[in-house]
């Protein structure tokens, strides 16, 4: 008895260690076989909760994923946009109805609730903030709409880029109809919701699950807000430091023309006349570059800004703030 308890203790410890090691190196067929086993297992477990969402009003078709036994569905805001009630189709063809709850369009995050009582198949939530380039992930979704002749196609890939903000980019190829579908880590925990694609095969964007957590209560209560914005530099929730930029220097430095009161820059002691040189060690190559570098972070992240003041170069630690929150703050 005692021995078995200890054994269990060790087993759990070992499992947790494996999960905590995010970027698993793949250097042999054996490593790949381990990835394969986990992929096949997670697909089997999560597919029953991966639904198609049909909007009777617009005829649009997307995907979603159930996250509790009562039938709460996470999806993309643009899938349920304009609908009050949607048709839900399970991979086995079973059909039911869901009421659309709230959405945060800035995060392309949406919720819906299946009307009939459960229990429904559901998936566990994971964390998106910890994901880094190279982490293996699996995307599911009803590509090109629900097709009774096939199950929702599996896409295996990895994170290729973090950000903008709460979003992340993977090389799991997506197409119309996949929107709102789930992105899982290799433990089968939900880490993102399919959102948009760019031209390149590895430009597939997903809304991170951490962003859903932040807005959970408001969305559950049926509140909808924000703005659907594919340009990260125009997203109202983008993280800012709170400066007005001057004309960029020929060497790429960005002079600070004004510092917004109560902003992260003001709190850190950045002053007009300072020249911004780097963000977490990455060199700033002009105003757009500074914007793009910052867009990768989320509000609340602490970044180190390299600043040239006169001949001295110093580093300031700043906690990034959301653009819309800074604007709110200034109104007070």
């Amino acid at each position: 008895m005692k021995i078995s308890e200890i054994f269990h203790g060790i087993a759990i410890f070992a499992l947790l260690t494996v999960s905590a090691l995010a970027r698993e190196p793949v250097t042999s067929l054996k490593d790949l076989a381990a990835l394969e086993t986990r992929t096949a297992a997670l697909v089997k477990r999560t597919m029953p909760a991966t639904v198609a969402i049909l909007s009777p009003s617009s005829g649009a078709s997307g995907s979603g994923v159930i996250v509790d036994k009562d039938g709460l569905i996470l999806t993309a805001a643009h899938v349920t946009d304009g609908a009050e009630e949607v048709d839900i189709v399970f991979p086995d063809g079973k059909q039911t109805k869901a009421k659309v709850l709230g959405s945060n369009y800035s995060k392309d995050a949406g919720m819906a609730q299946i009307v009939d009582p459960g229990p429904w198949p559901f998936v566990e939530l994971g964390e998106s903030g910890a994901l880094k380039a190279g982490d293996w992930v699996v995307a599911l979704g009803h590509s090109e709409g629900y097709d009774p002749a096939r199950t929702p196609p599996v896409r295996f890939g990895r994170v290729v880029s973090e950000g903008p903000g709460n979003f992340l980019t993977t090389d799991c190829t997506l197409i119309g109809g996949d929107s709102g579908g789930p992105l899982f880590d290799l433990d089968g925990r939900l880490v993102g919701i399919n959102s948009s694609i760019g031209e390149a095969l590895d430009n597939n964007n997903h809304a991170g699950i951490d962003g859903f957590r932040e807005d959970w209560k408001r969305m559950l209560a049926g509140e909808s807000w924000g703005e659907l914005q594919l340009n990260p530099l125009a997203n109202p929730e983008r993280p800012v430091i709170g400066i007005m930029m001057g004309l960029e220097l020929r060497d790429g430095g960005v002079p600070v023309e004004q510092v917004t009161p109560r902003s992260p820059a003001a709190k850190a002691g950045i002053r007009p006349g300072d020249i911004i040189r780097s963000v977490d060690g990455e060199r700033v190559r002009g105003g757009r570059s500074l914007g793009m570098l910052l867009a990768k972070y989320s509000a609340g992240d602490v970044v180190e800004i390299g600043v040239q003041r006169g001949r001295e170069t110093t580093k300031f630690s700043l906690e990034l703030m959301r653009m819309d929150q800074l604007a709110e703050e200034l109104k007070r």
Partner: peptide, 17 residues
């Protein structure tokens, strides 16, 4: 520009992988 926000280190990591 394929993935506009991809950092050099992310590019290196995924290429090596």
């Amino acid at each position: 520009q394929d993935v506009p926000l991809q950092r050099a280190e992310e590019r290196r990591a995924t290429r090596q992988q």
